[in-house]
Nucleic acid binder design. Structure first.
Lengths: 132, 132
DNA sequence: CTGGATCCTTACCGATACTG
DNA sequence: CAGTATCGGTAAGGATCCAG
C-alpha cells in the first residue's frame, strides 16, 4: 500500500466531509470562517507578523473584544500563532501558520471581490428597491 | 481619453474602496458575504437553476426563514435571479447572475477548504485545548 | 500594551401559524 | 409550493472597568 500524500488525504476528505450536511463538522468550520473579522484579520496578516495593536489599527472599528475573541478562535483552529514577548510593556505578535497561509488567498479574494464589485452591487440594490 | 474597460474600473475601485475602513461600503458587503448560508446557496446554484424546494433539500438544516431571507438579499444584491412560473402550484427558480458567477469560485473554495482541512483544524483544537 | 470580566442592548434566528 | 408574519429565546457584540 503506497504512502498517502497530503493531497490524497485532502481528496479523500473532500468525499468524507460535506458542508451541505447540517451535522458535518465541516459545516461548523464553514460557519466560523464565514465571519468578516476572520477575513479581515487573516488578510491583515498577509505581510507577516503583526502586533495586537497594529491589527487593531489596521482593522478600523473592530472592538477589543471581537479582535481578541476572533484571534483566540483562529489560534485554536491552528490558523494563527501567538507569540508573547515578556517585555514591559508586554508585546504580542500574531502570525499566519502554514495552515492559515493556505486559507489566505481565499480570504483575500473575498475582500477584494467586495471592494471590486461594491458598485455593481449598489447599482443592483437601487434597481431592486425601485421595483414597485 | 481612452474608454475605460470593466477591468480598469475594477482596478480603480480596488483603490477607491477599502474594507479595512469601517464605514466603507465594501466592509458592509464583506459582512453580508461572510455568511455560511450565502456560500452554501451560491455553491448549490453552481450547476444551474434550482427550485426553492431543491435548495432547501440540498442545504440540510436551513430554516425556511433563513433560506428565503438570504435568497432575497442575494437577489437584491444582483447575485441571484428569481424566476416565478405562475403554475399551480407555483414554481420558483433561482439562478446565479453573471455577477454571482464571478463570486462562485471563491465561495466554492471556502466550502472546499473547510471540507478538506476540517481534520487539520480538529487536530489543532485538541492540541490547543490540552495545553493546561 | 494586551488583554480578561462584566453588563447590557441589540439583532439573529428557529418555531409556529397562516396565505395565494 | 413558496412564501409572509409574528413571537420569543438566545447569542453576538459593544462599552466599560480592571489587571498583569
Amino acid at each position: 500500500m503506497p504512502t498517502q500524500s497530503a493531497a490524497d488525504r485532502r481528496a479523500a476528505a473532500r468525499l468524507a466531509y460535506d458542508a451541505y450536511i447540517a451535522k458535518c463538522p465541516s459545516r461548523q468550520l464553514l460557519s466560523t470562517l464565514s465571519d468578516k473579522w476572520v477575513s479581515l484579520i487573516l488578510t491583515a496578516l498577509a505581510g507577516g507578523a503583526q502586533r495586537y495593536s497594529d491589527l487593531a489599527r489596521t482593522i478600523a472599528g473592530v472592538s477589543q473584544k471581537m479582535l481578541t475573541q476572533t484571534l483566540r478562535s483562529l489560534e485554536r483552529d491552528g490558523l494563527v500563532s501567538r507569540t508573547l514577548t515578556p517585555s514591559v510593556p508586554v508585546r504580542v505578535d500574531y502570525e499566519l501558520t502554514d495552515l492559515g497561509r493556505t486559507l489566505l488567498p481565499i480570504m483575500a479574494s473575498i475582500k477584494e471581490w467586495a471592494e471590486a464589485h461594491i458598485e455593481d452591487v449598489q447599482t443592483a440594490r437601487t434597481r431592486y428597491d425601485n421595483l414597485t
